[in-house]
Simulated scan of single mutants.
Amino acid sequence: MIVKSARQATGQRILGRFRDAGATEVAPDILLPAETLLDLYGEDIRARAYVTHDPIRGEVMMRPDFTVPVVQMHMAGGAEPARYCYLGEVFRKQDHGDTRPDHPRENEYLQAGFELFARDDAADAEVFTLFADILAPYRLSAVMGDMSLVLDAIRALPLSPARRDMLLHYIWQPKRFRACLARFSSPAPRRDFGDDSGVWTGLRTPEEMQARVDRLNAIAEETPLPAEWSGRLQHLLSITGSAPQALTELQALAKEMPQIGPAVARLGKRLALIAERGIDIAAIRFDASHGRHSMEYYDGMTFSFFTHRADWPPVASGGRYDALTQVLGQGKAIPAVGGIIRPGLVAELEAGQ
């Protein structure tokens, strides 16, 4: 077991590398307003975060993540371009199921992070290369994804806006996404909701419920998604392999789905820029579904660095989150990309544990 002081020392060393890359160190609060995080993540965050009530501030949440408060700080008046780094604890509940594993994930652990706000086409490559260089001594496996490919593919489907929005909403919940896609790919029976004249109870008004019934009936009358489109989307989500091989497969798929063409071109340019920085792109595994298992605010490149240990979470992870800056910037926006490293896991690797 690595003592906390050793983890802090490792974190400070990583933080020094981020400072050397031009980042300004920041220290967001530990207690954050819960309302903002709930608006971003939905009520599901309650199952993973520590939420309490302050008599003055109202509902607050122990910091589950650094990116959101850093974006809030920057969008409140930060100049661009800007680089920030940080080191501190995050707090997340862990569901170990019925049996506690031999190496359970921690509820409180250190994160060292780097965030880059810049209108620069090379920003993705810069951040990925920075993380790859810091982690090079540990012989980790790099995985990359790109959520813009998936999001653009869904927006291209010949579906009603309501159905497309539903698929976009569930993209980070693979089981529900598959269920929706299967339902939209076959004729939907019209539902009989009956006529209940009983006493009304519940949080929704009768008008809101009727609007919901009307939406469900309208969906049932839609033409099913043609099989070729469902097949193309499933093909996209299944693409995995070395980055150059995946790029070739995506370029071929873009001939059938021209809407993903710009995202494929950006991926090709990103890989070329990473290669120019001395990284072997053939050693990067591209997984088109990678971003679906990361934070829900990523809307572009995503990446993770893994050990061979199946019971370990990623040693580092990150990605692009342009849309988040617009949401938190109240209309203002700036392209942004960043990531975090877990100093505790790095310290364990160095100790040979």
Rank of each mutant, 00 (worst) to 15 (best):
A49E: 02
L87K: 01
G88V: 03
P69K: 05
C85R: 06
M62K: 03
F66S: 02
P55D: 06
C85F: 12
H74V: 02
Q72F: 04
M75G: 05
I56L: 14
R63W: 00
A76M: 13
H74W: 11
D54H: 06
P55Y: 06
M73T: 07
R83P: 07
P64G: 08
M62C: 08
V68Q: 01
R63G: 04
P69S: 07
Y50H: 11
G78I: 10
L87T: 00
H74M: 05
Y50F: 15
V51T: 04
V70A: 04
M73E: 14
R63S: 03
C85Q: 07
V60I: 15
G88L: 01
Y84S: 12
V60T: 08
V60N: 00
Y86L: 02
G58D: 09
V71I: 09
Q72K: 12
P69C: 02
G58N: 09
E80R: 05
M62Q: 10
F66L: 05
T52F: 06
G78A: 07
Y84A: 11
R63V: 02
A76Y: 14
V60R: 00
Y84P: 10
G58V: 08
C85W: 10
P55R: 06
Q72A: 11
D54E: 03
A49H: 07
E80K: 11
G77H: 10
R83N: 12
V71M: 04
E80W: 05
G88H: 04
G77N: 13
D54R: 02
G78T: 13
D54M: 04
E80F: 10
M61S: 03
Y86A: 06
D54P: 07
G58M: 08
R83I: 10
T67F: 04
G58W: 08
E59G: 04
M73K: 13
T52E: 01
G58E: 09
M75T: 09
M62L: 15
G78K: 07
H53Y: 09
E80T: 15
R57H: 07
Y50T: 05
M73R: 12
H53K: 15
T67W: 09
E80Q: 13
P81W: 10
D65C: 02
G88I: 03
R63C: 03
E80M: 14
A82L: 13
M73L: 13
V71L: 06
D65G: 02
E80D: 08
H53E: 15
M61P: 01
A79K: 13
A82C: 11
E59P: 08
Y50C: 13
M73N: 08
A76Q: 15
V60Y: 02
V68M: 00
G77Q: 11
R57T: 01
R57G: 00
G78P: 09
T67S: 12
Y86F: 14
M73Y: 15
R83Y: 11
D54I: 06
H74K: 06
A79H: 08
Y84N: 14
M61R: 03
H74T: 07
Y86R: 05
D65K: 01
P55G: 10
A49G: 15
Y86T: 09
M75I: 14
V68P: 00
P81R: 07
